[in-house]
């Protein structure tokens, strides 16, 4: 039951809004559908922000619970994903800021940690890559991760939403509560910082990361 004409139009355009409106009406099945639909994307975003798969899942789960708790206050004003990532942004910002106050020592990429491949992934890698190429990719992943970690929280969120959620500046601005101009400036500084951090590795980007090993 959308409120007002614009909400109705939005709901007609965005099937996820219709799903969320069912959640608002206490439809448990609709909530499960919504979780199923978005969990992979949300965990991916959180993973890039916090760098840890387990924590990313916990945070994504908390986002969905907040969606459910706040369902009665939901009034569609934009795409559903914008509302979802606004909640995710607030939660991630809190986590990253509290982590900054209590810094932790990151694990090496080869340690059994968030950056290390899981057994199934390792098997795929073993079949696909030559050892040297695999090592190069793992090292590069760690270096890129470190470069991403040099960004401040807002820059990192903007980069992740832009890169992995394909959000345009206006959507990022809405999620982060900024102006479009501020997002443009934020992303420019972020990409400049990344370019500086990855200066020595730019020439390594010759092959697509998902391509298999050469024959």
């Amino acid at each position: 039951m959308a409120t007002g004409e614009s909400s109705t139009q939005l709901a007609l355009r965005d099937p996820d809004i219709r799903l969320m409106l069912r959640v608002r009406d206490d439809d448990a099945e609709a909530f499960a559908e919504l979780v199923e639909l978005y969990h992979h994307r949300l965990v991916t975003v959180m993973h890039h922000l916090v760098g840890n798969n387990e924590e990313a899942e916990d945070l994504a789960q908390e986002v969905f619970l907040r969606v459910y708790r706040g369902r009665k206050k939901y009034h569609p004003k934009a795409k559903f994903s914008t509302w979802l990532y606004t909640i995710a942004n607030n939660l991630a910002l809190n986590v990253m800021r509290s982590r900054q106050r209590k810094p932790t020592i990151p694990l090496n990429v080869r340690d059994s940690g968030p950056l290390g491949p899981r057994p199934a992934e390792q098997l795929v890698l073993d079949r696909a890559d030559q050892p040297q190429q695999r090592m190069q990719k793992q090292e590069l992943a760690a270096i890129v991760k470190q470069a991403l970690d040099t960004l401040n929280e807002r820059q990192r969120i903007a980069v992740v939403l832009n890169k992995f959620e394909d959000m345009n500046y206006a959507e990022i601005a809405e999620v982060m509560g900024l102006t479009t101009k501020a997002v443009k400036s934020l992303l420019s500084r972020a990409r400049d910082n990344l370019r500086i951090a990855l200066q020595g590795y730019i020439q390594m980007d010759q092959a697509e990361p998902t391509e298999s090993a050469e024959e």
Partner: peptide, 18 residues
């Protein structure tokens, strides 16, 4: 630089997440 971000480790949510 933007292309290098594709090398970031991919998340793999648990199958029973939902």
């Amino acid at each position: 630089t933007w292309g290098l971000l594709d090398f970031l480790p991919q998340a793999s949510p648990s199958p029973n997440f939902t």
